[in-house]
Structure formats: structure tokens, C-alpha cells
């Protein structure tokens, strides 16, 4: 990923720091949020648009909790030898149930999340991947999620 070619100014940083949550649900939410930041409604909209276009933000809107949708998602990892890594990565990524996949520096070097409507469907995805790739999948379903504050500060 290329670095950002847009330099955030002080107002941009205040927006990013202040609006990671708590965007109001009311008729004119930008007006309310802008007021708290000492901005106008149109200035706030323009700056969020610009931050999105510059990729300083990945999204603006409601952030949903996948666990509450009635579906299942499970973190899993594989140890894949270097010579086979790209083949297995392409195959894992091709499954629609795989939401994301990261290479990490460890003996367990491929970490991915499978999401589906039911835990059974997640498990059958893992079994399919194991049978095709020939590598064992370590399953790390979350047993408990701990509360996290919002806090990326620029």
C-alpha cells in the first residue's frame, strides 16, 4: 500500500480523533457534529469526503458487529511452507467465506477469518481448505471479546 499523498491538517486530525464513534442519529447529524468541532455542516461533509478520497479513512458510517448478525466468524491459522505459500494463499482467498487473510511472521504464517451464516458452514470451509491444501488449520474461535476503547489518536 502506498503512503498517503494527502497531508492532514489540524482540523482533519481533530475530526478523525473526535468522530471514531458517537456520530449522532438525528435529522441533521453533520450539523450537530460540526457544531461540537467548531465547524460548519458543509465544511465537515467536505472534509470527510476528502479524507475518504485520500484513503485516510476506510469508511464513514455504522460499524457492524458480525457476531450479532446471527452468523459465525472464526480466526484460523496455517503453517504453509514458503514454496507452497502463493498457491495456498490464492486458494484460500478464492473462497467467498474468507473475509480477510494476513501473512504474519511466525511458523503459523497464514492467518485468516472465515465468516458464514452458521458455525457448521465455517467448519466445512475449513475442512474443504484442509483437504485441498493438505495443511492442518488451527481454529481460534473467540471465547470472549473484551471491551476496547476508541482511540487511534493522530
Amino acid at each position: 500500500m502506498a503512503p498517503l499523498d494527502y497531508v492532514l491538517d489540524e482540523t482533519d486530525r481533530r475530526i478523525v480523533n473526535a468522530l471514531q464513534g458517537g456520530f449522532p442519529v438525528c435529522a441533521r447529524p453533520f450539523e450537530v457534529a460540526a457544531g461540537a468541532l467548531g465547524l460548519t455542516e458543509s465544511e465537515l461533509i467536505l472534509r470527510i469526503e476528502r479524507l475518504l478520497a485520500a484513503r485516510a479513512l476506510t469508511r464513514f458510517g455504522p460499524l457492524y458487529n458480525a457476531d450479532r448478525m446471527g452468523g459465525a466468524n472464526v480466526l484460523a491459522a496455517m503453517s504453509v511452507p514458503e514454496h507452497d505459500f502463493d498457491r495456498v494463499a490464492a486458494f484460500v482467498n478464492a473462497q467467498p467465506e474468507i473475509a480477510h487473510n494476513y501473512r504474519r511472521e511466525h511458523d503459523l504464517n497464514m492467518w485468516f477469518v472465515a465468516a458464514a451464516e452458521t458455525p457448521e458452514k465455517v467448519e466445512s470451509t475449513f475442512q474443504y481448505l484442509e483437504s485441498i491444501s493438505g495443511y492442518h488449520i488451527f481454529r481460534f474461535p473467540k471465547q470472549r471479546e473484551f471491551f476496547v476503547e476508541l482511540k487511534l489518536t493522530l
Binding site: L4, V16, L19, Q20, G21, G61
Partner: peptide, 21 residues
Amino acid sequence: MLAVGIVRRIGVVPNHYALGF
């Protein structure tokens, strides 16, 4: 949905990587 946690929050989602993290 916010009250019951289906929506975690509403706001901006920073791109950690692009912002230098």
C-alpha cells in the same frame, strides 16, 4: 441496533496503515 451492540458505533474508520501506523 446501537443500544444492543449490533452497531458498535457510527463514525469514521481510520485507515491505520495509510496514516502511518
